[in-house]
Amino acid sequence: MDAADMGQDLERVLLTEEQIGTRLDALAGEIDADYAGRELLLVGVLKGAVMVMADLARRLHCPVEMDWMAVSSYGAGTTSSGVVRILKDLDTDLTGRHVLIVEDIIDSGLTLSWLLANLRSRGAASVEIATLLRKPEAAKVDVEVRYVGFDIPTEFVVGYGLDYAEKYRNLPFVGTLAPHVYSD
């Protein structure tokens, strides 16, 4: 799927596939340096982080294991409900592990704040966060994020794993959705 396939649903491309790839290369370099000599467990947050986690993991040179967690504070709408539910828990014991949570986007920070506290309570040696996108102006709680791909404006974005009502995740870029799509 590309921009032409979206027709009038795409307002604009915010980040190109090339920009995302270049930034993931840089983030992988930072992560490799920070975790040199240590084993790293990447914890992807489903479903949005699938693209970020796959592409980031392939760029890393340090040994990694991967696990997935699904938590939800969204419905089919465009804003967080603030109520977190675990839909799929980890299969891995975190005791003594160095954990890097991989996110697609951080907006309010509510879900991530909850997730961070939850994973730290499981006995991990360290828990840090990497995200492709962050909306600083949308933050409702302060969450320390060690690796940030891009700070973006408070707009509803899709693509590269991000969806609206489960659509548009397979776009290779991040774009803004035309208001007519979600304003009925």
Rank of each mutant, 00 (worst) to 15 (best):
M1H: 08
A4Q: 14
G7L: 06
D9F: 01
L10F: 06
L10K: 01
E11L: 12
V13K: 00
L14K: 00
L14V: 06
T16R: 03
E17V: 00
D25C: 05
D25F: 04
A26R: 11
A28G: 08
I31Q: 05
D32I: 05
Y35E: 14
E39Q: 12
E39H: 14
L40C: 11
L41P: 03
V43Y: 01
G44Q: 02
L46A: 11
V52F: 15
V52D: 04
M53K: 03
D55P: 01
L56Y: 01
L56D: 01
A57Q: 14
R59L: 12
L60Q: 02
H61G: 12
C62N: 11
P63I: 07
W68V: 06
A70Q: 13
S72W: 01
S72Q: 02
S73N: 14
S73V: 09
Y74K: 10
Y74H: 12
Y74D: 07
A76M: 06
T79F: 04
S81C: 03
R85A: 06
R85K: 12
L87W: 05
L87G: 12
T92R: 13
T92F: 09
T95R: 15
T95S: 15
R97S: 07
H98A: 10
V99H: 08
I101N: 12
V102H: 05
D104T: 04
I106V: 15
I106W: 00
D107V: 03
D107E: 10
G109V: 05
G109I: 04
G109S: 05
L115M: 13
L116A: 02
A117T: 15
A117K: 15
N118C: 12
N118D: 15
L119G: 07
S121Q: 14
R122N: 06
A125C: 02
A125I: 01
V127T: 10
A130H: 00
T131W: 03
T131Q: 05
L132K: 00
L133T: 01
P136G: 08
P136T: 02
E137G: 01
G149S: 08
F150H: 02
I152E: 00
T154I: 00
E155D: 13
G159I: 09
G161S: 09
G161K: 06
A165D: 15
E166T: 12
L171E: 03
P172D: 06
P172G: 07
F173N: 08
G175I: 11
T176S: 11
L177K: 13
A178W: 03
P179N: 09
P179I: 10
H180Q: 14
Y182D: 04
Y182K: 07
S183K: 14
